[in-house]
């Protein structure tokens, strides 16, 4: 029981971390992709990002915490990051 509790805490911290950092990274790449898809100029993209980034981040964090299991949430975030960044690089994007 104690084990589970400790484990739970670790997983919870992991989820918080995943939401904060992973969410940030994922929002970044989503913004990049959106900017590219909409063919924005750099300047427009910056304006766009300064608004949309926070909305994306917000949604991601909410989603992160609405998933029932810690493990699923953390894994999901990692995988999502991997996949989307992969797409970004595959499309020739660079940061």
């Amino acid at each position: 029981m104690v084990m589970t509790l400790a484990m739970d805490k670790v997983l919870l911290s992991g989820r918080v971390l995943a939401a904060a950092v992973g969410g940030y990274a994922l929002s970044v790449v989503i913004c990049l992709l959106l900017g590219q898809a909409m063919e924005l100029t750099d300047r427009e993209a910056q304006t766009f990002n300064s608004m949309v980034f926070f909305l994306v981040y917000l949604v991601l964090v909410i989603v992160m915490f609405s998933i029932a299991s810690h493990k699923k949430a953390i894994l999901g975030m990692i995988i999502a990051n991997g996949v989307v960044w992969e797409i970004w690089y595959a499309l020739g994007g660079a940061l």
């Binding site: 990049l32 900017g35 100029t41 750099d42 300047r43 993209a45 910056q46 990002n49 660079a94 940061l95």
Partner: peptide, 11 residues
């Protein structure tokens, strides 16, 4: 921060 940062130069 990122030399190639897409927006930096332009802006």
């Amino acid at each position: 921060e990122q030399p190639g940062g897409p927006q930096a130069g332009a802006e």
